[in-house]
């Protein structure tokens, strides 16, 4: 099977819409087909990785743990947009998984480098 470079671009906060959860489904499918999958988090998408989700009160399933399990699927390339983090008062220590934080311009170049870019 041909391996392609897939980048999943996440730009929505979790729980308010279903995008974040659907994105994870696609990431896991890509990994199952042994594709070269990376994830980018920009704008409100960086909130997906904020640690400490307690969703009992809103009656929804917390999917924070799935990000921690991505490593088991050999999905280890998680990039966060530095400018988006700064606008939300977040630092990498606030996130539930290790990430590579980079300036937006560098993230744009990484995006150029992909075979497939999927937007959520």
């Amino acid at each position: 099977m041909t391996t392609k470079k897939f980048m999943i671009v996440n730009r929505k906060a979790p729980y308010g819409t279903v995008y974040a959860l659907e994105s994870l489904e696609v990431v896991l499918i890509g990994a199952a087909f042994e594709q070269d999958v990376s994830l980018a988090f920009m704008d409100d998408g960086v909130y997906q990785l904020k640690k400490g989700h307690q969703t009992k009160g809103i009656g929804m399933k917390a999917f924070e743990k799935t990000y921690g399990a991505l490593e088991d699927y050999d999905v280890t390339k998680l990039y966060v947009d530095q400018e988006s983090m700064a606008a939300r008062g977040l630092t990498p220590e606030d996130l539930c998984v290790p990430v590579e934080m980079m300036p937006r311009a560098d993230l744009g170049k990484l995006m150029e480098d992909q075979d497939v870019v999927l937007s959520f």
Binding site: P14, Y15, Y47, K50, G52, T55, K56, G57, I58, A87
Partner: peptide, 27 residues
Amino acid sequence: NAVEDRLKKAMGTLKVYALGPDLDARG
């Protein structure tokens, strides 16, 4: 958050409430 200052300024005339379960869910 980038709107923090604007929200604080508005608190002079507006009361601001936030829903606890939604804060908890988002950590």
